[in-house]
Design a protein around this nucleic acid. Structure first.
Lengths: 217, 217
DNA sequence: CAGTGGTCTAGACCACACG
DNA sequence: GTGTGGTCTAGACCACTGC
């Protein structure tokens, strides 16, 4: 078995994703230690990891809270994503290797196949792998790590508000164009297409979130 | 006194900055616990914080190492900074409030005064405050946190290779133009000027690093 | 198949936030 | 001033690494 703190951080993240812990909720060490049948320290470690991923807020001497994921947070996050995905796509095009090229096109194809089966979870994973392939190809570890963190947060949002299932063909089209720009080593096109792709995802998500917020008032 | 783990993480970071721990060096818990006169857990916690800041690399079951800060890491980091500073400057211009406007212009003025005294440390701090003011004004917490992490890394690099003291007038000019674009709420200009500013810093730093790498071979 | 060193336990401690 | 709950201690445990 992997270390407890890794296991625990995964379980807490899952429990946040399916809403067992609500946004803003206080996470107490003793409670969690009891719940996951372990001692304080692995829990603390796990919470630090989640804190590093931006899923959990931390104040010294006052503990951890589940981070509130609202429209304004998502606007911030997509501002960052928009910028980073564009840079990464550009770099991926410039630095393309045969291996990266294969990885990207097979991830693109995989997404197309999987998304046809309307299995939401598998579609999300495939989408993740596609963007990961570009991240890897960019060779920018710093950017890749940030994107990886953001992906963990996006899982929560997509779970809560639904993934862009109504515009799957649009996503597939975006992926196709982006892939061919990168494979052609056309950095400028790749950057623009990546930015546009994120922009669409952002509009789609924000519309949904605002709809939910409005109807729950 | 603040919690030990905070104190310890500050001390280890300082010790990395002034080269007491070299890049790639293994950081052993027992050693550090002995050095800083505390037990394992606060050290572990401190290292996790530094790991979160990207200063320390971590592999499960195998411990922590001081992250190697080389040219390729800096290229990655500046790719990210370039993108983020531009977004933040744009947003700062769009969302400008009177308070933010004051904060930015007084940070700008402070940098001009302090840098005239050729006190490197104070100049770095003033530069940090200027960029922080823009970060804050952007209202993007996500981006601000990333930039804050990067600043910690840049402190190490500037300590090692020197801050751009030979182009201080250039930096001042950059800051002036950027400030007035933001105060004019000209988002496009602000984004471009911020990007250009980071680009100059990047070229300056990489030239120095490559010079040092070459001469040490 | 040791030894090193990361991980975990149980409980004491003590800072801060409440009433 | 009391109590909740975050922080710290000492040491045992046990997964890897390298002989």
């Amino acid at each position: 078995m992997a270390s407890q703190y890794i296991e625990v951080s995964d379980r807490i993240r899952e429990d946040i994703i399916n809403g067992k812990f609500a946004g803003g909720e206080r996470l107490k060490l003793a409670e969690l230690a009891n719940l996951y049948a372990t001692s304080h320290m692995p829990i603390r470690e796990a919470l630090r990891i989640l804190n590093g991923q931006g899923i959990v807020d931390f104040t010294p001497n006052s503990g951890m809270r589940v981070r509130e994921i609202d429209v304004s947070f998502m606007i911030d996050l997509f501002d960052v994503r928009l910028a980073l995905e564009a840079v990464q796509a550009r770099r991926a095009a410039e630095r393309l290797t045969p291996a990266a090229s294969n990885a990207i096109s097979s991830a693109k194809t995989e997404f197309e196949c999987v998304s046809a089966e309307s299995d939401r979870d598998a579609t999300l994973k495939a989408n993740h792998r596609f963007h990961q392939a570009i991240s890897q190809a960019s060779g920018n570890r710093e950017a890749t790590e940030i994107e990886e963190r953001h992906y963990q947060i996006l899982r929560i949002v997509w779970q809560r508000y639904g993934y862009a299932s109504e515009r799957l063909e649009g996503v597939i089209e975006d992926h196709r164009l982006l892939t061919s720009a990168i494979l052609d080593q056309d950095a400028e096109a790749a950057g623009l297409l990546a930015a546009a792709h994120v922009m669409r995802a952002r509009r789609n998500l924000l519309t949904k979130m605002r709809g939910v917020e409005r109807s729950s008032q």
